[in-house]
Nucleic acid binder design. Structure first.
Lengths: 200, 200
DNA sequence: TGTACATCAGTGAACGCGCGTTCACTGATGTAC
DNA sequence: TGTACATCAGTGAACGCGCGTTCACTGATGTAC
């Protein structure tokens, strides 16, 4: 991506900043992202990022929003296809969710933590997170209609399901779970327990 | 607590440092704890804390360990008494766990997050967290024996249960859940779904 | 009981550092005529 | 097509700040004799 000719104007610095910040987050966590470092990594002056983002927080918000976009895309991507049963579809979503978190731990932390970013101040971020939840609610509602799970309030059911996968993802990311445990087995046991608990 | 006479020697500065750091965390999050501020809040010089902790991380570790001690105590405290059924006992633990997190959000975050504290370097912290898990496993094993839940690997079951309550606690703390939602209802729905899913 | 002295919990001033951000500027670009 | 000029993405030096931590020190304490 940095293979454009070295012109004075970068070309698409804004996008590169978001991308590079995400890379830095992967490598060293959110704390390792500094405006100074990101400039120099992109071969650009320290002040250049301020042409595109008013301050550091704005950049981090953009990074988090981009994370939600990717996660959203992944959850919608149909590994099992529309052909899978309702239960399979939900199970698939849960698995992909946790896998995303495991593959992008620091990014995931940025998306959901309030350590680096105060949530209420950033409507775009709020909206990006909300879209994910609405998608889950939609799937749950659909599959309630197919009669495979209990017909409780779909929003509440979504929160319960989300809690379970978010909790598992967090505990794994924060290395609270014995590294000898078989993650796949634990993941499928979690989704299974959840689906059993939601069943009529 | 600061009502001892103003002597040159503080009396029990170490304990006060931990206590005060915990208070600051409650007020402004872990990032608001600085060695400078904590000294001045206790009416002591900036350098004084270094008599008791080699560095800031050591102090934060002590605070986190203290948090685990309190949480542990709370989970063991029998709201329902030993008289409650197995299921009631587990439900009670789940509820107390989430309530602790809601009452001490920043402290909880410090205990389980790796943002402020890298976990592997601090065996005492690791051990404090481990003790909590072992307690949960013990309760689950006991109640498997009473035949009220499925006889799966108790450690795996503990991880699943822990994931659910940790996830719920985290989402609530990070304000990812619609504030209009009835927290108590959501909490009991979560524990209920979990127990249903674990039932034989 | 009184004194000498080792110990250790405090002081206060200073250090160096890395950070986010600002400022006056300059080079490149694209558009009006 | 050629030129004047507004626009805007960059530069590089500097700012002020708050931080963790160190250092030589001093005051209080407790213990040996």
């Amino acid at each position: 991506m940095a293979e454009r000719a070295r012109t004075y104007h970068h070309g698409d610095l804004r996008a590169s900043l978001v991308e590079e910040a995400a890379a830095m987050i992967s490598e060293g966590g959110a704390a390792s992202v500094t405006m100074r470092a990101i400039g120099s990594r992109l071969g650009v002056s320290r002040a250049a990022p301020y042409r595109h983002f008013p301050d550091k927080t704005a950049l981090l918000v953009a990074v988090a929003v981009e994370g939600f976009r990717r996660l959203n895309q992944r959850l919608r991507g149909d590994g099992t296809g529309a052909s899978g049963s309702s239960v399979e579809r939900l199970r698939h979503m849960g698995e992909q969710y946790v896998r995303f978190a495991l593959e992008n731990p620091a990014h995931y932390r940025l998306m959901y933590g309030r350590e680096a970013l105060a949530r209420q101040d950033h409507p775009e971020l709020r909206q990006a997170a909300g879209a994910l939840l609405e998608h889950l609610i939609g799937v749950i509602r659909l599959h309630q209609q197919r009669g495979e799970i209990e017909r409780a309030d779909p929003r509440a059911q979504a929160y319960v399901a989300w809690s379970a996968v978010h909790g598992l993802a967090s505990l794994l990311i924060e290395r609270q779970i014995d590294p000898n445990v078989d993650v796949n087995a634990l993941l499928s046991q979690t989704t299974q327990t959840l689906l059993d608990g939601m069943r009529d």
